[in-house]
Design a protein around this nucleic acid. Structure first.
Length: 590
RNA sequence: CGGGGUGUAGCUCAGCCUGGUAGAGCACUGUCUUCGGGAGGCAGGGGUCGUGAGUUCAAAUCUCGCCAUCCCGACCA
């Protein structure tokens, strides 16, 4: 039976907890299937446990962290005027058929099933359809607009490859908000407000983040920004200017074309290049810079079977940009060797832009070259001194490459730098994408039905737990930012079982801190030696630690240690409670 | 989905190649000593070796199927 403690709980906030009565399931060894720091530390610290691939249990201490994040998000969303709702995880197929996404939504990600009456349902990967259903039923007049509804709910996406623990789980916690408007200006205002709100939320979590221009992806819509937490383990690459606040996902970052070269065209010359297939081999063979060459990629077209895309030899194709080109098939597919040979008469490795009879799309940087080297469209031959106007027929200049470190910034200010980021938020202006398909209208001033404009604003709550750890850990474990920490303070009595003075002092400080509303964990576990307690405290990342031992009590002091700085101080037993109260208060004032 | 790896105690793994009594460390239970940086002794509990078939006198070990899981490539909060 658990000892009754009337002071244990104050409202919903657990201010006092004894480690002997709390599930602290720390592991000394790193689990074999965890690759990155946040995943390893969440498992080792006993915050989460895997139930199945990409599906996790949140243990008591992990849930506390999750709820701290939720609380910050709720406070800021409420402050922005948004209203919290809760929509079902299980969603009927009919609404998805109405929006046209039942058969389209990245087939596979959507987990479908049927009930006993053989009706189709799915587990919600997102809630545009449901919120639009709510809006069209409940909103009648333009006077009710704008509104912004949000929820914090479990989502399920049947990712082909769950990875990195909570950073890419199949089941995860997300805050999603949806706004409705009668004018573009109103949508823009809410969009801007959400931009500010997201910045405020991430700042309160003390994260180093960047809002960046983003692709809208499969959700659709126009304007879109992602919020990235900077971390080397991030899956996205973002480009940002050295001299301005321009920042964009590399998927979107515009590659500015260089000035065309002014060199006079020289006579072309075919040379034998036996066995040379790659740009690196070609550049080494000719002893030239890869930037003097071009590479020709053949992909499936939308109107024609094949399309040629030409890039400078040292550049990489950007898949997202390529798919947006009208000549290119909506899903980028590279042509097979056989298809290429049938149309061009040469294989990959010997292709060039000269004399092709398929649409020719040339990246800006490649188009600026003169007297460059390209494949000769004849196996094992390349051509020197190729020039666009003279040698290549009709072509269109496009932006289809990834930007690189040092490229000029598209806004003309400074140069681009690249960093990795974890996408924790994404805001969109959806426009009419769903409201039109699902006929969500209100009456305007003239009594005429108008389709509402929509915005949508997502934030990965459980992903944030991982992202925060990626930015806040050391070799010993997690270092929670104060507003996220599961407990503010941990008290470790040394030899409390032997020394009544130690046990009593620890208990006294514990009660004093709890009474002051500080979330405090007393590590009173029997038979766990001090070293193990110190290691656990550091692993689970409690910001403030108090060590009570005979060594200090003889002098009337206890030891205070700061998790982040490692700094320690001896504080008198009479002053320690107030000392901590002041520290925690200054944490929350930040 | 394509390619590769791995499934043996709660966790980390050995054993498999070369078939013959199922192991270690950590964790757990009891006990004694210990107790300011993941202690040590003694005693103990815990495994249908992922699963199904096949080969064999005999399968954790060899063969095949299936399942799970992880990693590398195309998607997303």
């Amino acid at each position: 039976m658990i000892e009754s403690d009337p002071h244990l709980i104050s409202g919903l906030k657990i201010t006092r907890m004894k480690a002997s009565r709390y599930t602290i399931s720390t592991l000394k060894e790193t689990p074999a299937d965890a690759e990155i720091a946040s995943h390893q530390l969440l498992i080792r610290g006993g915050f989460i446990r895997k139930l199945a691939s990409g599906i996790y249990n949140w243990m008591p201490i992990g849930l506390k962290v999750l709820q701290k994040i939720e609380r910050i998000i709720r406070e800021e969303m409420n402050a922005s005027g948004a209203q919290e709702v809760l929509m079902p995880v299980v969603q009927p197929a009919e609404l998805w058929e109405e929006s046209g996404r039942w058969g389209k939504y990245d087939d596979g990600l959507l987990l479908k099933f049927t009930d006993r009456h053989n009706r189709n349902f799915c587990l919600g990967p997102t809630h545009e359809e449901i919120i639009t259903e709510i809006a069209r039923n409940e909103l009648r007049s333009h006077k009710q607009l704008p509104v912004n509804y949000y929820q914090i709910q479990t989502k399920f996406r049947d990712e082909t490859r769950p990875r990195f623990g909570v950073l890419r789980a199949r089941e995860f916690m997300m805050k999603d908000a949806y706004s409705f408007h009668s004018s573009q200006q109103s949508l823009q205002e809410t969009y801007d407000l959400m931009h500010e709100t997201y910045s405020r939320i991430l700042s309160r979590m003390q994260l180093d983040f960047r809002p960046v221009l983003a692709d809208t992806g499969s959700i659709g819509g126009s304007a879109s920004m992602e919020f990235h937490v900077l971390a080397d383990s991030g899956e996205d690459i973002i480009a940002f200017s050295s001299d301005s606040d321009y920042a964009a996902n590399i998927e979107m970052a515009e590659a500015v074309g260089p000035e065309p070269e002014a060199t006079t065209p020289e006579a072309t010359e075919d040379i034998s290049t036996p066995g040379i297939k790659t740009i690196a081999e070609l550049a080494a063979f000719l002893k030239i810079d890869p930037a003097r060459t071009v590479k020709t990629l053949i992909v499936k077209g939308s109107e024609t079977p094949l399309v040629a895309i030409v890039l400078r030899g040292d550049h990489e194709m950007n898949k997202i940009k390529a798919e947006k080109l009208p000549e290119v098939a909506e899903t980028l597919i590279m042509a097979s060797e056989e298809e290429i040979r049938n149309v061009i008469g040469a294989g990959t490795g010997s292709l060039g832009p000269q004399g092709l009879n398929i649409p020719l799309l040339v990246d800006r940087a490649a188009a600026a070259l003169t007297n460059f080297v390209a494949g000769a469209n004849r196996d094992d031959f390349h051509t020197l001194n190729v020039n666009w106007e003279r040698d290549c027929g009709d072509f269109r200049v496009v932006d289809v490459r990834n930007v690189e470190e040092g490229d000029p910034s598209p806004d003309g200010k400074g140069t681009l730098r690249l960093k990795r980021g974890i996408e924790v938020g994404h805001i969109f202006q959806l426009g009419y994408r769903y409201s039109e398909a699902m006929n969500a209208t209100v009456l305007d001033e003239n009594g005429k039905a108008i389709t509402m404009l929509m915005g949508c604003y997502g934030m990965g709550v459980s992903r944030l737990v991982g992202a925060i750890i990626e930015q806040n850990h050391d070799e010993k474990g997690i270092i929670w930012p104060a507003p996220i920490a599961p407990f503010h303070c941990i008290i470790i009595p040394v030899n409390g079982h032997k020394s009544a003075a130690v046990a009593e002092t620890a208990e006294h400080i514990y009660k004093a801190l709890g009474a002051a509303g500080i979330e405090v964990l007393l590590d009173d576990r029997d038979g766990v030696r001090p070293g193990a307690k110190f290691a656990d405290a550091e692993l689970i990342g409690i910001p403030h630690r108090i060590v009570v031992g005979d060594r200090g009590l003889d002098k009337g002091v206890v030891e205070y240690v700061n998790r982040r700085s490692g700094e320690s101080a001896e504080i008198s037993t009479h002053q320690i409670a107030q000392y901590l109260i002041d520290l925690v208060k200054s944490d929350s004032d930040k």
